[in-house]
Amino acid sequence: MSAVVTAKGLRKSYGGFDALKSVDFTIERGRIVGLIGPNGAGKTTALKSLLGLTTFDGHLDVFGLDPRQDRHLLMQRVCFIADVAVIPRWMKVSQSLEFVEGVHPKFDRVKAERFLQKTKINLNSKVGHLSKGMVTQLHLALILAIDVELLVLDEPTQGLDILYRKEFYQELLGEFFDDNKTIVVTTHQVEEVENLLTDLMFIKDGNIVLDSTMDEVGERFVEVMVSGDQVDVARQHKPIAEREVFGRKVFLFDGIGSETAESLGDTHRPSVSDLFVAKMKGVSA
């Protein structure tokens, strides 16, 4: 596997505010990376840097290019959906196809049209007359028909109803993703992407607080439902989070080993959202 993105000492500050405080990370080819963090944590700044939409300090290499210098070259190999419904409202659907065909060497118009046929989108409609869900479908149709190596999705399904959201990720996996491609996705709806991700990256206050594969996450973190008499014993193992479900304590542990965990109670794999909450609070109860 080779690195698609390499960041070393990536920094960005707006005035006095440090949006990114010298972070290091690499993204390998063929991975689906979830970049997760609260608003203002630096997610968007990281993505913008990666896409050549903003300036930054430090070293950042995407396919061997510096995004600050070569955004237009980079966009032949990278595409992004930065927000829902940013396709210009005045455009006709057919014009959006013609435009992308004209400017993108790797666009397959037939593929995009085949995808659109599965939807209710009319080629003669104006984008402004489509529903938000349909605009996202159109954007997805355009993106899926571009044979890029890295796809960046920033809150791609925000504000969409559940039917569109499910379909969005299904199509993405079925039509786009393969071993040679890489997806970076940020979202608030962690549950939706949880099962797609191969890698997880948590970002908080401009720092990366977790960067590991989902397999490693499964080995490292464990959630244990502890019966009442074991609670004090469990606390000695320094859980990173503690909550109560139906009168029983649930502890989240970081790297205590499965035997120890099983001796405390029923174990299971923590959900990404529980892990996220624990990591963001940063408590060790």
Binding site: L51, H72, L74, F80, V86
Partner: peptide
């Protein structure tokens, strides 16, 4: 209207 995010996702330089 933020459609600049669509234009900038295409391999077109700002000079062009």
């Amino acid at each position: 209207d933020r459609s600049i995010l669509f234009w900038k996702s295409m391999p077109v330089s700002d000079l062009q």
